[in-house]
Design a protein around this nucleic acid. Sequence first.
DNA 1: TGATCGTGTGTGACTTTATCACTGAACTAT
DNA 2: ATAGTTCAGTGATAAAGTCACACACGATCA
Lengths: 213, 213
Amino acid sequence: MPHHSILDILPEQLRKEAMEKIQVMRFPSGQVLFSAGEHCQGLPLVLKGSVKVQMTGVSGHSIVLYRMGKDDVCTLSIGCLMTGRGYRAEAVVEEEGEAAMIPRGVFDRLMDQSPEFRLGIMESYGRRLDDLMLLVEEVAFHRMDERLEEWLQARASRGVITITHQELAVELGTAREVVSRLLKELERQKMVRLSRGKIELTGLLDSSVLVGA
Amino acid sequence: MPHHSILDILPEQLRKEAMEKIQVMRFPSGQVLFSAGEHCQGLPLVLKGSVKVQMTGVSGHSIVLYRMGKDDVCTLSIGCLMTGRGYRAEAVVEEEGEAAMIPRGVFDRLMDQSPEFRLGIMESYGRRLDDLMLLVEEVAFHRMDERLEEWLQARASRGVITITHQELAVELGTAREVVSRLLKELERQKMVRLSRGKIELTGLLDSSVLVGA
DNA sequence: TGATCGTGTGTGACTTTATCACTGAACTAT
DNA sequence: ATAGTTCAGTGATAAAGTCACACACGATCA
């Protein structure tokens, strides 16, 4: 029995009807849920796990746009579902999990019948828009060293992160060399310890702590 | 009698009801429709003119996120309307025009009653999301000289553009000095002629013409 | 008809980031 | 152990961002 905040708020009758037509899919870490150009079959609701959405530019470079986790709705799919256009980005599973697929017909019906469902969808859209606006500002105006430190902090203020420099470069939308150099500098400052495919955070001092003091 | 594609497709009955509660506002060039932090009173539908939406980062720098023109819906307002949060960006009128303001109650009713209206709203969201995704890619991976040339081309492939370097910098999300230098370089290449507050395009050769040949 | 002031533009010096080209180190599979 | 693959480090150079300041243009006012 799939649980998702946007389904749980539905009135009993509608929820039951919807449940019957919803398929739950499991996805292993690393699986590509959809890639650029593909067409959308239904609206995925993330029940468990985490998925990153990234796009690759004409330049061939990629950047991570946002992540989806439990109780998220795949906002991108809504647009593709309603307009029939293909995806512009791709979604890759980071942490294995499962999603409920809402077929087009059920989606239309829920949008029509349930103000709660509509609100959920609109909120999801609003959040994505916000995320992207913030990302634009981040990419356009923030220094790479600060962005890298923030990323590391957000991921784990202490402990070991398993990621390659290349993947980290995609997270930040920069080049692998840049990440390597910045990390080396952090290592010289004793803030991290580096090894192949791993970054150990040892003494990252969040600069905002100093500034905000 | 206001005309807007999302209203014109409504069934007669609903359209009439809506029209009664909609206020049409005129706005002069330069007017700020809303700014960051403000709360939203209703959903603006652009009937005429053009509006640019820009945000200012913590750094103090600004960047233009997208533009709205005839038949556009102010997507940002939807989110603010439904969640009650304040705007994160600001909207400035570029070309004087007018907008129809849909009050919250009418918006809710239209969303509830009209699949056509819903589709229009969702399409609008989808387009914005696409715009922003493209912008992220553009900002993260494209060279400034190319972006500048593209911007000039898109604006007017020939003729005089009235804009300051500072404003152009905000369009591209960069610094004024960078724009000044790139423009000077274009002037040396006889592609533009510069004067205070004006850029005359003389012989801009779109590189895509050459590449695509 | 200058003098003055606000705004826009030009530019040097320097830092940060991106790109290119390559080396070597670390894991994997045989 | 060896060969192949993926990751990481680094020098050289170009592009872009930052800082500081000079100057140019146009409006206004005495």
